[in-house]
């Protein structure tokens, strides 16, 4: 039983690394890393709402509601940004709204609140077969969309004005990018939790951007750093008996710290 859980954990680390390489790198390129944190908390509110709906009205997977909530928040932030609002301000407001809603919904599902709270910490060694299947589908979706629109995303993020002038629909691509970030964050919630999703999505890409300062280098480097961090986390969890994501986050942060010393 332990073996299959570890195997699922290792598969999850590979998939998380792909999200870090794509979503994480573009969050760094776009300078919207706070967005990832905001979306993670928005998803938490969605999960709490999903549990409330399941308890009160009809059966629904709370992760689906979390995903819908995260996408809704991403669209709201994208729209505010399109209306010339600073993205950080928009994320800050949505962050406050989502945490208010999370507290409200959690107070309505007191006995089951622990399920939603579990999404704050997550555990990569407690994933079910269904969790892995959901992860495979969502990561495949993310990677596929990135492969198809990679150069359009790059142009829009690098020079949105010229991209728009050349005929690219910047608002559409920015919105798609925000949606991919939302899907990426929610798909990682059960593995690493809302707090540490930031550690495994952003830190590897930030470190890779410093160590390998090209677009391809950042993407490949983010994948490798996230992969090694995740595997290190799983390995260390057997040695010191702590949550793998905490060890993975610390390892990734250590790699980032090393890149600060690079000339």
């Amino acid at each position: 039983m332990l073996d299959i859980l570890v195997l699922r954990g290792i598969i999850a680390v590979f998939l998380i690394s792909a999200v870090s390489a794509t979503v994480g790198s573009f969050s760094i390129f776009r300078g919207s890393t706070f967005f990832v944190s905001g979306i993670a908390h928005g998803a938490l509110a969605g999960a709490a709402l999903g549990i409330f709906i399941a308890l009160t009205f009809f059966t629904v997977d709370y992760l689906v509601v979390a995903l819908l909530f995260a996408i809704l928040f991403a669209l709201a932030i994208g729209y505010a940004s399109h209306r010339n609002e600073n993205v950080d301000v928009a994320v800050g407001i949505m962050f406050a709204v989502s945490m208010s809603l999370a507290v409200l919904f959690l107070s309505m599902i007191r006995e089951y609140a622990s399920v939603a709270w579990g999404l704050i910490i997550g555990d990569i060694l407690l994933l079910s077969q269904a969790d892995i299947e959901i992860l495979v589908v969502s990561v495949t979706f993310i990677v596929l969309i990135f492969l198809i629109f990679f150069r359009k995303f790059l142009y829009v993020v690098f020079d949105s004005e010229s991209a728009e002038a050349s005929g690219l629909h910047v608002f559409r691509y920015e919105t798609l990018l925000f949606i991919l970030m939302a899907v990426g964050v929610v798909s990682l919630l059960k593995c690493v939790g809302a707090i540490l999703v930031y550690a495994l999505l952003i830190i590897p890409a930030a470190a890779a951007r410093r160590a390998f300062p090209t677009v391809e280098g950042t993407i490949a480097g983010a994948f490798i750093i996230a992969l090694v961090s995740g595997l290190f986390g799983i390995g260390m969890s057997f040695v010191v008996n702590v949550a793998p994501s905490s060890m993975a986050g610390l390892f990734a942060a250590g790699v980032y710290a090393l890149t600060l010393f690079r000339k």
């Binding site: 390129f29 776009r30 300078g31 150069r151 142009y155 690098f158 050349s166 677009v215």
Partner: peptide, 27 residues
Amino acid sequence: GYLPQRDTINMNVPLRVKDVLLLPLTS
């Protein structure tokens, strides 16, 4: 063909010169 003011460019994207030139066509 458009040359915007340079402050509209996002320097967070670590592109090489060849990438910058090719973006209008390869996008």
